[in-house]
Design a protein around this nucleic acid. Structure first.
Lengths: 257, 257
DNA sequence: GCTTGTGAAGCCCTTCACAGCG
DNA sequence: CGCTGTGAAGGGCTTCACAAGC
């Protein structure tokens, strides 16, 4: 998961669990595909398979939205598309500003998946004066100095941060001061925001690290209990060398005896 | 969250809960920053603040790795950096292949956060013959026809998919056939993979949709109980119009009476 | 008969609160 | 005395299994 509200213990929103909210976009995508193929109805089993979840979970999720299915038949595709869109707030237009137009920022500006979901890239902002005016994805890049005005003028409430880590908190503060209340953060930094502002983070290297953990485990299963992997650096000696206990199954003699 | 194992109920790995694994990279980042500032030790309270979690959770997380702290003092920064790196498998080199060199693929190829964590972009692969040979981020793009050989030759076990959605499953199948056992998927598609292959997904538009949900909720709180938001499309009429019950607090009269 | 909707059970994770230890 | 390590309690999410209903 790439979530990250800053504290505030993820209160249940209008009775809909966070975990369910996070899956609604998945269902919506699957339903949209069915809609394009003019499929009129779909069972929880079929839809669950298309969304990559199990059917009991899907039915439970939908039960939080209301009773939108028909027993013995399934769910009406068009109707459900509308209900989920409405629940997610996608029946309205969301102007979004992207701050930090490097490789990633430019990639996001070009990303087609936003526009099709009601997200409109309303502004691109960068600190580099040399970029100002030059269009990226058909949208002119504006300078950070005007951030406040740009956010206000466009009624932006969702900001995307794709700056280098060092600039992220400052940009975040300015976005919040300008009225942004939701932030999608791609910078590898922990942002602190005032109460009432939502932050979600996407960290590309974290995802790879989690994969590496499981990958290492797979390799370890084939030849379990072997020593240190090849090419490993020497472990640093601990400041206060005491007897260490590891969890069961830990590699023996991690530290130089 | 951006996780997505295909079924397999997320078994606890070597006693370490998935939720803990997902936080280890966060701790590692905070610790690395402390290390660069030559801070010798850190308390759970301080480190938790830097990582954006609470200290009880952090201590519990570390307890799964072993007893690496000193009571009354805290944790030795260097030692902990090493232990977490080892646990995540970052003490070894992970060659990674990126398939689909569009805007996003190129941005990832250029992303500095990979190399610094032991991830080496070993190959860039694209289906467009016109791109073949041209270097991106100093790495020549190779053609999909050679995918199998490229994966084998470089010993790649982690693949990154940044293709258009239509090509993702096919690319995934080919990666798996060539020996890849971990996949990071940026394409908005549900991938199906055989047992033993891990998939994590990052979906940019899903993150925005989740933010939109909460954003809508905030707006609704200010003027609660209002009608449909401005600019809303007319809801489709349901195939079998029956009496509908919504959850408590639902907007009244969602459908045209 | 077939599929939804949902109480109940179980699981995992978080949080608490304090014993243990330097 | 301070901070870690951890049983125990609590909460949320998932899964089960079946009653409800078309």
């Amino acid at each position: 998961m790439a979530t990250g509200r800053t504290h505030r213990p993820a209160t249940r929103s209008r009775g809909i669990p966070e975990a369910t909210v996070a899956r609604l976009p998945l269902y919506l995508r699957a339903l949209t595909a069915l809609s394009e193929r003019s499929v009129p109805t779909v069972s929880s089993e079929e839809l669950a398979a298309a969304a990559g979840v199990n059917s009991a979970k899907l039915r439970k999720d939908f039960s939080y939205l209301g009773s939108y299915g028909t027993r013995g038949v399934g769910y009406d595709v068009e109707y459900l598309v509308y209900q989920i869109s409405r629940e997610l707030g996608l029946t309205q237009d969301w102007p979004v500003a992207i701050v930090g137009i490097g490789n990633l920022g430019a990639a996001l500006a070009n990303y087609g998946g936003f526009a099709s979901r009601g997200f409109r890239v309303a502004a691109l902002i960068d600190a580099d004066p040399a970029m100002a005016g030059a269009p990226v994805a058909g949208i002119p890049v504006q300078h950070t100095d005007d951030l406040d005005r740009i956010i206000s003028d466009n009624g932006v409430s969702i900001g995307v941060i794709t700056t280098p880590p060092g600039a992220a908190q400052q940009v975040c503060d300015r976005l919040v001061a300008a009225g942004v209340t939701s932030i999608l953060n791609f910078a590898p930094t922990v942002l602190s925001v005032p109460e009432g502002v939502d932050v979600r983070k996407v960290d590309l290297s974290i995802e790879l690290q989690i994969l590496a953990f499981h990958e290492q485990r797979k390799a370890g299963e084939e030849a379990a209990g072997d020593g240190a992997p090849a090419g490993e650096a020497a472990p640093p000696v601990r400041a206060t060398p005491t007897n260490r206990k590891g969890p069961d199954g830990d590699l023996p003699a991690v530290m130089p005896a």
